[in-house]
Amino acid sequence: MRPFSKIRDKAAWLWMLGSMVLVLIVPVLIAYGLIAKSTPLFQDNLIVDILMGSDWKPVRGSFGFLPFIAGSVYVTLMALLIATPLCLLTAIYLTHYARKRTLRLMHPIIDILAGIPSVVYGVWGILVIVPLVSDTIAPMFGVSTSGYTLLSGALVLAVMIIPFILNIMIEVMRSIPEELTESSMALGATRWQSVKKVIMRKAAPGLASAVVFGLSRAFGETIAVLMVIGNVPKVPASVFDPAYPLPSLIANNYGEMLSIPRYDAALMFAALILFVIVLLFNLASRFFITRYEMKQKGTLK
């Protein structure tokens, strides 16, 4: 080999290694930065007061995160409650009942849903979901509301996470051998009974991974939810109350955070909560998918 190409080879290797190292270092830097920036918050507030307190008055130095944590948890869980059964039924239908062509047609639809920007979902929420909640759903329960509610946020969020959950569920269902359904049906079970009793049991960890993955997507979703959920810093008492999730808190207040002491520490703490929770859920999702793969290989009984 000529010496020139040897140098070039070395340079290219360094470039690849350097890029990889950079990619691995950035999240560590982010974690460190967020922790360092949010510590001033704990100088004269107890962590219990911050996490469990519901009094949010930055001007007076009182930072109770409970309304925001509750807002995030409620809207995420409600979105999952709506999206999971829809995705599960659709995944079963596409993999066990529908023609192959239907599944092929469904793929671009899922891709497009996954690709639509958050802010466009928000516009759709304002155009369709908010009026639907204020004019149709709320009056059905005898409630009058502006439509900018927890329920609207959950509905928009549910649609946004459907492509992610559905995609994994279809992959999981497809990886289960056809023979299982066939032998179950040969024993006289209907297709639905086979799915319910045999396939679902086999697929359970994989499906759980899909749901947890959706959870982590939903938890950090910002703009779309912010646009329809009302943003009132109070723990919501019903689905027709406005809520104020953590990402909205950060997005809405970045402009004024410099003028009030410790406000920026509070917002960085909110970002830190998001960062940690999403990493934990992603970790849980990986755990389930690994279990599922082990189950497939038969190394786990």
Binding site: P27, P247, A251, M268
Partner: peptide, 26 residues
């Protein structure tokens, strides 16, 4: 390990990047 690490990062919300970058900029 590298893939696992990247998968963990895949879902980190963009608002976290935004907030972090903003505090760096200050």
């Amino acid at each position: 390990a590298a893939r696992f690490f990247l998968d963990l990062l895949w879902g980190v919300p963009s608002i976290v990047y935004g907030a972090f970058a903003f505090s760096m900029m200050i």
